[in-house]
């Protein structure tokens, strides 16, 4: 019976990638408790298929299960609360400014001083599918190919989501800087 072998392999993979998994779960759920619930469910789900699949990239594979569990949990809690508004259905296609249009007069050095809180708030306001690609890229340092694997979308979609996420995130930061310097 491979239970002990696979268990120790699995434990090793989990220990290696738990910090990234936890970080992602915190960003994709509303509360700390939700993140921990989603993560526990994800880890059990992951363990059940680990032996069968023996993933070639355990990180991308685990993060994919984590994000799926986070979305499942969100759906459940939204249904339970009989959501009055669809927070995550932000129509980014219309809201996002065209990427080619430069902002009025922002200076790069001002942006560098941007308050992390402004960015954090803007990131929380993004629709989750945009938030996740941005986080996987900038915080976890995943390549486009791995992000595509985690999010279950083609690489082209990863690129367009990332580009939209950046365009969206840039706006409030630039605005906040302009306010401060005004």
């Amino acid at each position: 019976m491979p239970a002990s072998t696979s268990l120790s392999d699995f434990e090793q993979a989990l220990r290696t990638h738990l910090a990234a998994a936890h970080h992602l779960a915190r960003w994709l759920t509303r509360t700390r408790a939700d993140a921990e619930d989603a993560l526990q469910e994800a880890v059990l789900r992951a363990f059940r298929s680990f032996d069968r699949l023996r993933p070639t990239s355990p990180r991308a594979w685990l993060l994919r299960i984590v994000r799926n569990c986070c979305y499942d949990l969100r759906k459940q809690s939204e249904r339970a609360a009989e959501a009055m508004f669809e927070e995550d259905a932000l129509p980014l296609d219309t809201a996002s400014p065209a990427l080619g249009v430069p902002a009025e007069n922002p200076e790069a050095r001002l942006l560098r001083m941007a308050d992390a809180q402004v960015l954090e708030g803007a990131l929380r306001d993004l629709a989750p599918e945009y938030r996740e690609v941005f986080l996987l890229r900038e915080i976890e340092g995943l390549a486009y190919k791995e992000i595509a694997e985690v999010a279950g979308v083609p690489i082209g979609t990863v690129m367009s989501r990332l580009s939209r996420a950046r365009a969206q995130l840039r706006v409030p930061i630039v605005a906040s800087e302009q306010k401060e310097t005004a």
């Binding site: 738990l18 910090a19 936890h22 880890v43 790069a108 942006l111 941007a114 960015l119 954090e120």
Partner: peptide, 27 residues
Amino acid sequence: NELLALQETARERLPRFDPPPGFEERL
């Protein structure tokens, strides 16, 4: 420059959520 600044801000300033102590063992 703006996108580079956004990238740097995200990488350097965004909070990191580390797992609470004992969480790994619980899992």
